[in-house]
């Protein structure tokens, strides 16, 4: 069954102002939260980094925003999401959208189960005000409160 973003993005899956120096470290920090929650294996991170090196930084989806993910066959146990913000933004090598300071990571065991959460993540991040709320949040709880507030009303693209 498809889960809501707010149900997947629990407080322990949100880390703010993480200190990293490279895009690899940024993805590692985001995926580590998925590993700690039992959602994926270390293989998931290795697979993602390998794929980016092969085909380019496909995880960068908008200015300042990355969505770390890779294939369902790379050590995925269940649908999971994490969110980190970076104290110092990092470059992924995408001139239009670098530097990145907001990194969502997710894993999906199939093409359906994460659809609702992915849709909500995209709807939320479409709105610059919400990205600002993520960037200025002081606690994971504040991020969750922004999500809850935003989705009080039904949203459409």
């Amino acid at each position: 069954m498809s889960k809501k973003l707010i149900d997947l993005l629990q407080e322990d899956l949100i880390h703010l102002n993480v200190e990293v120096n490279t895009w690899e470290e940024a993805l590692a920090a985001g995926v580590q939260l998925l590993i700690d929650s039992g959602g994926v294996e270390q293989q998931y991170l290795d697979g993602m980094i390998k794929m980016i090196k092969e085909i380019g930084p496909y995880v960068v989806i908008a200015p300042g925003l990355a969505l770390g993910h890779t294939g369902s066959d790379q050590g995925v146990h269940r649908t999971c999401f994490s969110l980190i913000t970076l104290k110092n933004p990092v470059n992924f090598g995408v001139p239009d959208n670098d530097p990145v300071d907001v990194v969502f990571c997710f894993a999906a065991p199939n093409k359906e189960e994460h659809m609702q959460a992915l849709r909500e993540m995209a709807l939320f991040c479409c709105d610059e005000l919400n990205l600002k709320a993520i960037r200025t949040a002081e606690t994971p709880k504040q991020v969750r409160e922004s999500l809850i507030k935003f989705f009080k009303e039904e949203k459409k693209f």
Partner: peptide
């Protein structure tokens, strides 16, 4: 990249 993220 894998049909699960940005393409969806």
């Amino acid at each position: 990249g894998n049909g699960l993220g940005s393409s969806l």
